[in-house]
């Protein structure tokens, strides 16, 4: 259990790894909400498997964060015993799952982002971070192979599916810019070759996404930053509700295990 937790007093490496872990666990939870709700059985299984990849990523990162912190906290303590303001995920991960078009559009945006990001992170001077990235990049490449045909199909499908795709782009675009912001602790680690310069990925990301969407005549515009705050614990109203559900069991029955 975690009784008091002050993120500002933590080391840059801890905050860096924790941020990546929070991104993964929050997105994983959102994807897992499709379990038993997806359009058909195979898609249900697929989304749950993508969620599983992200929970695996989160576990490796939380275990490493706990090791860096050195206070005998466990991965579960970090995931289940921090409050909303102590979560440092980027906001795009926490947005409610919405309809299927929204979920797939977010996934496409993030798959492209992680595709570029992890490709750099595998060269991190921190061996554990590099090893986790090396595992994750393979999974992300596969996710992208799956999200692209979906975006194509929905964009060029029926009037209804296209309308939903356009709405999803509209709802998501303000949250994309935060992916390319460097918090001070990540900038500090960049000098040591541990983190990745997020801002350098904006151009490749914009080019890739715009080119892909243009084929289906979907206009993205650009990823100008509008909404930020996740890395500093300032969240949308949605995260608190999500954590209520995600943390319920551990908070009701502390230290309970399967």
């Amino acid at each position: 259990m975690i009784n008091s937790f002050s993120i500002e007093q933590q080391s840059p490496l801890f905050r860096f790894v924790l941020g990546l872990a929070d991104d993964s666990v929050v997105l994983s939870h959102r994807l897992s909400e499709w379990c038993s709700n997806a359009p058909y059985l195979e898609e249900d299984i697929a989304l749950s498997n993508v969620a599983l990849d992200y929970i695996g990523r989160a576990r490796m990162l939380y275990q490493y964060a706990a090791e860096i912190e050195g206070k005998e906290h466990t991965e579960d303590d970090l995931a289940y015993w921090r409050n909303e303001r102590e979560f440092t995920n980027l906001l795009i991960h926490e947005l409610p799952k919405g309809d299927f078009a929204f979920t797939m559009m977010r996934q496409f945006f993030l798959d492209v982002f992680y595709h570029f990001y992890l490709e750099k992170l595998v060269d991190s001077k921190d061996e554990t971070v590099a090893a986790i990235a090396a595992k994750a990049i393979k999974e992300t490449r596969y996710h992208l192979k799956r999200s692209e045909p979906w975006i194509r199909q929905l964009s060029e499908g029926t009037e209804e599916s296209r309308a939903r795709i356009l709405r999803a782009v509209d709802e998501l675009k303000d949250f994309v810019g935060e992916l390319f912001e460097m918090p001070p602790w990540e900038a500090e680690l960049l000098a040591e070759g541990i983190s990745v310069d997020r801002s350098s990925l904006q151009k490749p990301w914009d080019d890739y996404v715009q080119k892909f969407l243009a084929v289906s005549d979907v206009d993205f515009g650009d990823s100008q930053l509008q909404i930020r705050g996740g890395r500093n614990g300032i969240h949308t109203e949605h995260l608190g509700h999500m954590l209520c559900e995600m943390q319920y069991l551990q908070r009701c029955y502390p230290t309970m295990q399967w």
């Binding site: 195979e42 299984i45 697929a46 498997n49 599983l52």
Partner: peptide, 13 residues
Amino acid sequence: VISQFGSTSCKSM
């Protein structure tokens, strides 16, 4: 291909 994921992460259908 029917689905890019099967009963486990390591398989597709």
